[in-house]
Amino acid sequence: MPDSPATTQVATPVTAMEHEAHNPALLHHFVDAQQQKNAASLGMWLFLVTEIMFFGGMFCAYLVYRLKYFNAFAAGSQQLSIALGATNTAVLIISSVTVVLAVKAAEAGKRKVLVGYLAVTVLLGLTFLGIKGFEYREKFERHHVPGPTFQFTDTFDDNGRQIPVDSNEAQLFFSLYFAMTGMHALHMIIGCGLFSVLAVLAWRGHYSPGYFTPVENAGLYWHLVDIIWIYLFPLLYLISRHS
């Protein structure tokens, strides 16, 4: 809306830059660095809660159908490779260790160590994704990908009894398998991208013992993605394996 002629303007845009104190990372609207750090940390934790609920919807669907179609879920699960699944679990756990060591290095101000651990974490993340991709390829080859080409002729071996399995019910297992691991892999990809950016920024010296909140928060994100996998592994790979 245009101003009336009687208006007197003394407006000068006040930018955040002019309000910044000596700490270049401190944003103008915070009282001090501690408040900023606490806010960022709480924000990250709340974001993690949204992630829990986001995956939670799928866990709920998984439970409902697992209870409904247990035999099909067990038969589907037995088609997955425990070796690959367990290896991936181990890869993720090791990557969580490297992340926590990265945060420790950031806190101690060891720039090169920090960059090193971040790089290793990205590599481990890519390893996970590679193994996951290998598993997906195998599913394609065996027509275990839900859709028009889906085929499932295996039976559920219940202590020697061969129970035939409805292919639609098995398709539900693989639908949820792909939905859950796919969404998890998407989070892994985001995490790898995040850590790559952080590694570059860390190399350029963006972080100091007084300010490494992004490294810390990305670490929290990575640990949560790890935790989700910790649940996915037994739920998807280990159904009724004793038979």
Binding site: L46, T50, N168
Partner: peptide
């Protein structure tokens, strides 16, 4: 914060179901 992510994933499932007909919400497919 607690509720919205659940509807988000539900909508994702509806979209996936509609595009690929996986059967998650389709009684004909279980």
């Amino acid at each position: 914060v607690l509720g919205t992510p659940v509807v988000a994933i539900t909508i994702v499932l509806v979209a996936v179901e509609r595009l690929f007909h996986l059967g998650i919400f389709d009684p004909r497919l279980g």
